[in-house]
Design a protein around this nucleic acid. Sequence first.
DNA 1: AAGTTCAGTGAACGCTTGTACACTGAACAG
DNA 2: CTGTTCAGTGTACAAGCGTTCACTGAACTT
Lengths: 218, 218
Amino acid sequence: MGDTAEAITLSVVTTEPVSRQERKQRTRQALLDAALDLVAERGFSGLSLREVAKQAGIVPTAFYRHFASMDELGVALVEESMRTLRTMIRSARTRPSAYNDMIRSSVRVLREHVRAHEDHFHFLARERYGGTGPVRQAIGFELKLFVSELAVDLARFDFLRDWSTEDLHLLADLIVTTMLTTVLELLETPSRDDEIVRTAERRLRLIFLGVPNWRSVP
Amino acid sequence: MGDTAEAITLSVVTTEPVSRQERKQRTRQALLDAALDLVAERGFSGLSLREVAKQAGIVPTAFYRHFASMDELGVALVEESMRTLRTMIRSARTRPSAYNDMIRSSVRVLREHVRAHEDHFHFLARERYGGTGPVRQAIGFELKLFVSELAVDLARFDFLRDWSTEDLHLLADLIVTTMLTTVLELLETPSRDDEIVRTAERRLRLIFLGVPNWRSVP
DNA sequence: AAGTTCAGTGAACGCTTGTACACTGAACAG
DNA sequence: CTGTTCAGTGTACAAGCGTTCACTGAACTT
């Protein structure tokens, strides 16, 4: 993967005059992209400030103009990735979907978005547990928020109308964990997409089968 | 955690004559223990050969008498941890457990074993996705094996007698993922054990609720 | 036109890293 | 008793690390 890449991300194509802050933000994005590139093969904790800077096309010391540390860069990466995740859930929400078709279409949306933004999903799913320090903490926090949002979404379904908040949260949590597991399977095995999608659907189907019989206990 | 530990693991208490291979194996174990100690705070990929050697009480170059690389040490750690996991499942299997009590007692066994071998479980659950290279690969392989074993176990239950191998595998996979999620929750929040156990039970209960209604589709 | 701001530079620092190599001395085999 | 094996030692080196500091020059303000 990108063996002799040297993929300087700063484009030098156009000579149009750009403002200083615009150029700064461009470099910042180059740093984020560079880190996302490298993180796939070696994990975020195995990433050095120097190589990220080099990949972004700047000198190591210039890194500090944008982030105080690698951890700060990592947290920014979490935010960026979560934005992608939310885009996906919005896309899944606005789909017209019947009851049983819902699972099928949701998993399909997942597959599409994972393939379109492999880096972000890879980063989130991998560093969720594997990461250390602020990055894992940030993912944990954001994901907890995300589960709550999904719980609210679920509340709008007829067959979940009288579920308690706590129970909805439980269901949402189970769904998110299952989804993230599927994400990692999709990313680890590039070819067997159909099989993985089918397994994901079966997993969710089994979970939702229990829903009608669920009786909450305090 | 262990700030000024300097926990040399080689005991010098007894002067009993020990054979050379015995002493070697003792040092090897010291290396494994040292790595397990350090891995909790920084992740396996953030571990250096030198500090593991120091923690084990030997000079860096002596490391190579036992492992060709840190990756090899990591794989050995996977095997050791999996042995602990299998001990747990054996312990859960030999428990007399009624239908609904089964979930409760299984989760209880999980909690006990996690608390008794925090390092091993932490290592497995963390590096399962977060790790890189041979270690993650080894965990993936071993865990796949483990899921198959659990599927065989499940087949012995009356209410699963006529399930296909594939469906049992699906259920086992879902259980293992849920269990590992619970493990990480237990390890990340040292105090809220009861709450986490309760949530784990509810999760499994929801999953098993779907079982009676399950109809496999090709 | 003159002065200020600040993203990016380049040399230098003290440290840790993995690994090579020649060594020691106790456990072992004959 | 003699010679061999080999786990553990100590020194050494090149490479990479994060961070410091004084600097340059184009974009900005006045």
